[in-house]
Design a protein around this nucleic acid. Sequence first.
DNA 1: CGATATAAAATCCTATCGGATATATTATTG
DNA 2: CAATAATATATCCGATAGGATTTTATATCG
Lengths: 230, 230
Amino acid sequence: MGANGQEQQGTGIKRPPRLGEEVYNAIYAQLMSLKIPPGGRISVDNLVRELGVSQTPIREALSRLEAQGLVLKTHLVGYSAASQMDRKRFEQLYELRMLLEPYAAAQAAQHMSDAAVANLKRLAGEMEPTGKEDPRSAYSRFAQRDSEFHDLVAQGAGNELVQDSLARLHIHVHLFRLFYHSLATSEASIEHGEIIAAIDARNAVAAEKAMRVHIEKSKARFIHAVISAD
Amino acid sequence: MGANGQEQQGTGIKRPPRLGEEVYNAIYAQLMSLKIPPGGRISVDNLVRELGVSQTPIREALSRLEAQGLVLKTHLVGYSAASQMDRKRFEQLYELRMLLEPYAAAQAAQHMSDAAVANLKRLAGEMEPTGKEDPRSAYSRFAQRDSEFHDLVAQGAGNELVQDSLARLHIHVHLFRLFYHSLATSEASIEHGEIIAAIDARNAVAAEKAMRVHIEKSKARFIHAVISAD
DNA sequence: CGATATAAAATCCTATCGGATATATTATTG
DNA sequence: CAATAATATATCCGATAGGATTTTATATCG
């Protein structure tokens, strides 16, 4: 089972696209872009009119989003976007990352294929801040790549359950919805580089430590925006 | 957000029951009881006839089960129960448990309320093998209590994300579907007692170690049944 | 007898409809 | 004027019907 449920079938048989899948992606994009604000209500009928499909695929997509914790459902009331993380949830998220991701980095250093490492390097290259760009869309792009980076490391660890558990957190979604105004990407690129170097050197201990440092610094970069909540 | 999505609303307002929820529980029970075998196809129309409800709530329940990884969906083909764990997945499951549950036990020793500890003791008492009982239903009962026990410890750790990540694995479902013929409950009861004692003594180090030992022994008890797969 | 092509059945996927409930608005009353 | 009650609207929940696709069964042919 893949991380995002969008893995390709090995056989080349092309199946017609599922409408529910596109609806899922559409809603997901609206959550990422903050078009649907935290806590905002999500009306099925509105989506019917907006997307031009019937209720069935929309409800199917919303059920999946609900199971993933991205939207909430109240019986006979409707769906609504998950509220922003409070301080407590933020701490919990990084606590959990700290349990899984350094381990994943260490495993990746031992098991990752050379091709996958090359993939990692390529991706890191694309994350470099490109001089002049709209800061907001730049951070959006960075968040996307950053998510892929961490997912690749988790995938390299070879434990699909760990990879899935991390993917299900939708870390980049929640963080972006908190910090869309932020920027701070150059520091993270450096830290990513150190992680890649350790993995490339097949140094598990160094990879684990580099990931640990990266997550700690990431938390320090972001925590200022959430101090409001107790 | 609760672990199973079945938490009660704090307010006493009674909402009419959701049909989709009962359908979910019905299918879940059929998975636990192996009435739907691993990999077995799940026909929506059959469920319509069997449960006497329309397709809508059934598809809603199946979507949630799909998001939780308990059933698979193939476009234009239908739903099917998740296949049995193979050796690799079994190893991954215990690897992940080893990352999260000892940590949860240590946190529980520090943060769990006395009332919750009492709850833990009560539950452990109910898990004692009760002399004469049908071995199979005895193990079914044990699996249920065991799941609650570990969930309570995770809850006591105070990190809902860790608790949810563990709950989403549906450990007891997958293990039961592998080892429904097994029994081995008395040993686990002893190990549970040691975990409780450490938590009760507020000894985080001992609780972490006791949980670690318990998971390792649990793995050793079950691994024989999965050696077939490479 | 085996393989292929055709036909039939089962199933899923989407769309539409009616009933039930919660929410918002308005009107009434102390 | 504030608070309550009644109404109106919007929305969800569940049921049903039709179209599309896959799968299975059957028949035909080499």
